[in-house]
Design a protein around this nucleic acid. Structure first.
Lengths: 219, 219
DNA sequence: GCAATGACTGGATACAATCCCAGGCTGTAT
DNA sequence: ATACAGCCTGGGATTGTATCCAGTCATTGC
């Protein structure tokens, strides 16, 4: 999707990550400029804009130190090429699935969870970071990792990862003939009704487990 | 150590932790004031000084958002590097703790979960199989594994493993002087009130994560 | 009774920080 | 040749933020 970072942009990004790991808060433009030898904070500003355009950071307008790392990872010395092929890296963690792109595309994988795939049954293929509280009564909260087994073969009552018109969602599956209902486990959310003859529904996989607390602790 | 936090100071501390977990950077005085309903940022400033004196935060003078959590409660301080200390066996899974026996006694350990202890922060020492639905609104269901960090040092609002008169339970912790309330996250369960001067309460550890689905799949 | 402390309001000030504008210099693609 | 993007200097307006000062009110220990 977005072009890779230039060498200079990577340097700026690395400095942001290092600062957050060391101090617990992001740097200012002036601090970036000082660290990298710029004489003007505007040089840092422009780099930040570029990093924001490319999606590796997010800028919060008007806010001091308003820099966020969407992946939430502040590991040391992360170069964007740290995504080696799985082997024993564990399960890939997938977050923020953009509309229209395959769920396991490399740019969505922000880190790995060092856990064997076959701890779950059926085995997990990846972990999906869940957003929102639509499944809270099923014990799946915002930010949780849902262990997903890739399959199209799902049954009534199971928790599935579905894609409706390029939108990825986690819901409970219910089918009557050619009509599918995706039920949220939260009274605040209405069920999603899909007529398979008119609308397109793709089943990405089956929820086989939940992991909470990797890095952030419990609330 | 220093004196415990007052209720108000605890509220401010909680807000700082929550903000850092959610946004990746600490709040300003004004943001604290707005969130807690102060009309003056000075109220927040004085609370921050008190928290700094008591050692639970550290203020960096002259720096916007210059608040640090020395202990490392933020997601920023994760070094998800797999320390190969006991990464072989994984975390022991503890279930059905009998009354009167230590929680990590060998006869309770029925199996191991092949997951590195330091995937969670602070690190998990064991996994406790939770029975009942008393914490269902916190997303902890019957049969879930609660990752537990062994410590006595717990704060208001945290999910703890406690032992009252030989009974092990998972609840949210709340303290007022010598009076402790263990709050269930389920309206069907009444809070447990403990007067530390008459009853015995032992904190076994702090809940740092949840794992669901090992072996059985999701319901 | 009195000092000390916690928890604020309200106002003020000086610096920190974001963000805009106007350039310049280097490549690389058209 | 020309256009364009990346990378940087320098300056400046505007807002964000930390920090101080002067009080009020209530509680607690002495």
């Amino acid at each position: 999707m977005s072009r890779p970072l230039t060498a200079r942009q990577q340097t700026v990004y690395d400095f942001i990550v290092k600062t957050m790991a060391e101090f617990g808060y992001p740097p200012t433009r002036a601090e970036i400029a000082r660290a990298l030898g710029f004489r003007s904070p505007n040089a840092a500003e422009e780099h930040l804009r570029a990093l924001d355009r490319k999606g590796v950071i997010r800028m919060i307008p008007g806010t001091s130190r308003g820099i966020r790392l969407p992946a939430g990872e502040t590991e040391s010395e992360v170069t964007a090429e740290t995504r080696s092929e799985d082997a024993d890296a564990g399960l890939p963690i997938v977050g923020n699935v953009a509309a229209g792109s395959p769920i396991l595309a490399a740019e969505h994988i922000d880190r790995y969870c060092p856990m064997p795939a076959d701890y779950f049954t059926p085995k997990a293929d990846y972990l999906l970071r869940v957003r929102g509280l639509s499944m809270k009564d099923a014990g799946i909260l915002d930010g949780d990792l849902l262990a997903v087994h890739r399959t199209q073969d799902v049954r009534d009552g199971q928790i599935v990862v579905a894609r409706i018109e390029d939108d990825v969602t986690v819901k409970r599956f219910q089918r009557h003939g050619s009509h599918v209902t995706l039920v949220a486990e939260n009274p605040d959310f209405a069920p999603i009704e899909i007529d398979l003859e008119n609308e397109h529904l793709e089943i990405e996989g089956l929820g086989v487990g939940v992991i909470r607390g990797g890095g952030s602790g419990l609330q």
